[in-house]
């Protein structure tokens, strides 16, 4: 069962729910941190990192001896990552998406592809949880390849919890694709509601079943509750606003360590999701 924890905006408590849920699930559990721009789950789970692997995308190198300056490479490239200026083309690795078009199209076979590192995947354990995280290199713009590399670690049969980046853009879709259920974490405020509706729209477009967790319940207004009622979205859990939680978070403690009664509530959340997925 693959559960993705997502949210329309950042700072709603996605990581709190993801790590708390992983800790409260028994048996074979994996946690995949796909928020590769800001991977934070490790701060709470403090895993033993046992190994890592570089993530690269293939970029072209041009053999100047073979190149005859046709310029076909520059024409096919949609990203201006290879441009032909009369002589041998110039490659801009940071713009390359690694589609391979230039190498395929070159009539002289002057282009070969070599990997360029854009990030890293680290793996290890935190107690009974198998932990995997991706980390995008600072200044890199291409997170989907790193997320795809993290998601290769998904094992059939395990309970896999995926922490997605916030928002509804392309990288978020990469994280939520091929999951069985999405938990949307939100706050009961006008910002929270606005971003929740966008996230719901995205998940419906992708046909992924979803439920909502309201974090800091009681701080704002009842707009989120009313929206969920009218849209027929189930509210899986309400985590009341509690200064103890904010303080625990700031120290890097997981929810169920800070407030033990949450262990049961989070375990209940896992059971409720499992029931929804199997029905």
């Amino acid at each position: 069962m693959r559960i993705v924890i997502a949210s329309g905006k950042g700072g709603t408590g996605k990581t709190t729910v993801a790590t708390g849920l992983a800790r409260s699930c028994e048996g074979d559990v994996q946690l995949l941190d796909c928020d590769v721009e800001e991977p934070d789950c490790h701060l709470f789970l403090k895993p033993n990192i046992e190994g890592s692997e570089a993530v690269g995308i293939p970029i072209p190198t041009v053999d100047g001896e073979k190149c005859t300056g046709h310029g076909e490479c520059g024409k096919i490239c949609q990203y201006n990552a290879i441009v032909s200026l009369g002589g041998a083309p110039v490659v801009f690795p940071e713009l390359c998406h690694g589609c391979g078009g230039c190498a395929l199209v070159c009539p002289e076979e002057a282009i070969t592809e070599v990997p360029r590192q854009v990030g890293v995947v680290e793996y290890g354990h935190s107690g009974h949880i198998e932990f995997i995280q991706g980390r995008l290199r600072v200044g890199e713009a291409m997170s989907p390849p790193v997320m795809r590399a993290v998601k290769k670690y998904v094992r059939e049969g395990a309970t896999t919890i995926i922490d997605a980046p916030p928002g509804t853009s392309c990288p978020v879709v990469e994280a939520v694709k091929h999951t069985d259920f999405a938990v949307l974490v939100t706050e009961p405020t006008p910002f929270g509601l606005n971003d929740l509706t966008l996230a719901v729209e995205m998940l419906r477009k992708l046909r992924i079943p979803l439920g909502v967790v309201i974090n800091r319940a009681g701080i704002g207004d009842d707009g989120v509750e009313a929206y969920c009622r009218s849209e027929g979205i189930s509210i899986l859990l309400r985590i009341p606003y509690d200064r103890r939680i904010a303080v625990a978070y700031s120290r890097g403690e997981t929810l169920e360590v800070a407030i033990p009664e949450y262990r049961e509530k989070l375990a209940g959340l896992a059971t409720a999701i499992a029931a929804k997925v199997s029905s």
């Binding site: 800001e38 934070d40 701060l43 890199e140 713009a141 990288p171 978070y249 700031s250 890097g252």
Partner: peptide, 24 residues
């Protein structure tokens, strides 16, 4: 820290980083 952030701060006069006192 990805592409949109780079696009929004390149060439700005001043960047104000807002943070909270948490490990993250």
């Amino acid at each position: 820290i990805g592409c949109p952030v780079i696009a929004s701060i390149t060439g700005a006069s001043l960047v104000l980083l807002v943070t909270e006192p948490t490990l993250s």
